[in-house]
Design a protein around this nucleic acid. Structure first.
Lengths: 216, 216
DNA sequence: TTTAATTTTTGACTTTTAGTCATTTTATAA
DNA sequence: TTATAAAATGACTAAAAGTCAAAAATTAAA
């Protein structure tokens, strides 16, 4: 029974090779400019083969975005710390997100690209995508941290952990998107934004926004 | 000297006609599926003529997005109210944004589409775009309201009005983007989101986040 | 080992659409 | 009425995504 298993392994390896090649091409040429033909060349395969492993260009891009999320999730994991309370850990996680954007700018940009895009061209039944959302999304870990903060009394508990999580995530990505893609716009408005300044503003607002409300 | 003026007027009218046609086609067929050929037909012009008025497809989309922003800016204007203090007006403006998304869903979607997109294909020297950013963007009005809130003591003043404004805007659009485009994702995560619930969470977080910090 | 069946890969081909530009049409000035 | 300028046309080009019948490679059977 070893042949079927070996073939399956080889298939997964080829899939991985294609994603590697796509990463190189997307990141060097830019996500829009990169062509499937170029990716095929980089993977030493023909274009047709790509379509045996990925339904379309977008699904291939999404495979890279899932990798990016994995990296980010690992960084989040490193921020867990028994000594800190929930809200401190949330801040650490937030800052590690900023670090991630600097350390892996290409992966970060790809993530942001999908953050504001409908996913109609994607097959949501795809097992890779299903698995990602059920088990690997960084938001799963983040929700646990928020819940911990609610238990230790550092984070407000009048909003469910899920709603808090998704709001925090969406607010943060919203600001990061704004800062990366609209830098020229800011200049046009006459605010040649000091990015760090904006980030500190964001954290400050969020800190007050999610902290347990002190009874006065 | 009347001829040059009339010609200029006619030119602007034709430009408007093209945007009208584009609006119809983009909104009925969807922004991706719509073709320049279809828009030309709808405008009773040839495709080439479109390119005399707009550099490329994206610039035409952006013209509609600017219209959307104008509508939104008008709605913001209606929320101004001498009796309310700054933070109350900010909340009213926020809620009018939600109303806008329901009343003009197509315009809203187009706005969100551009909110997370680089503008490389756009000619930022274009006078229409310049004018928009300098004079018409809803953010200009919003900044004034924030500043008022800082003066009347209802909004924190340890962050500049501009940074507060852009952060609030980016956070809100981030959440709205998340809710519209990722509805299916939320279901996949096992949170068949009650959208209104998320929105209330957002407002609650932002209220605490930007309020003047009371000395305890 | 040879042959048949199955799986995987290929790349030429189709289709679609954005954007161009030489030519034609229309409007203005002489 | 003719010349000049401005505006509009649509056939054409280029680029790239996605398809599919045929070829190559692999595995199973005889």
């Amino acid at each position: 029974m070893g042949i079927a298993e070996r073939k399956e392994r080889e298939k997964q390896q080829r899939r991985k090779d294609i994603i590697d090649a796509a990463e190189k091409v997307f990141f060097s040429k830019g996500i829009e400019a990169a062509t499937m033909e170029e990716i095929a060349e980089a993977a030493e395969l023909s274009k047709g083969t790509l379509y045996l492993y990925f339904r379309n260009k977008e699904e291939l891009q999404y495979a890279i975005k899932m990798r990016a999320s994995e990296i980010l999730g690992d960084q989040f994991l490193n921020q867990l710390d028994e000594k800190s309370n929930g809200i401190e850990m949330v801040e650490r996680i937030g800052r590690s997100f900023i670090e991630f954007s600097k350390e892996f700018p290409d992966h970060f940009n790809l993530m942001m690209h999908f953050e504001g895009k409908n996913l109609d061209n994607l097959n949501m039944e795809d097992p890779h995508i299903q698995k990602y959302f059920r088990e690997e999304s960084p938001l799963i870990l983040f929700t646990r941290v928020i819940a911990k903060g609610q238990q230790d009394g550092s984070i407000r508990n009048d909003i469910t952990a899920e709603v808090l999580t998704h709001n925090l995530w969406a607010m943060t990505t919203g600001v990061l998107q704004f800062l990366t893609k609209q830098r020229m716009v800011l200049e046009l408005c006459g605010h040649p934004g000091d990015v760090a300044h904006y980030i500190e503003g964001l954290f400050s607002i969020l800190r007050s926004g999610i902290a347990k409300i002190r009874k006065s």
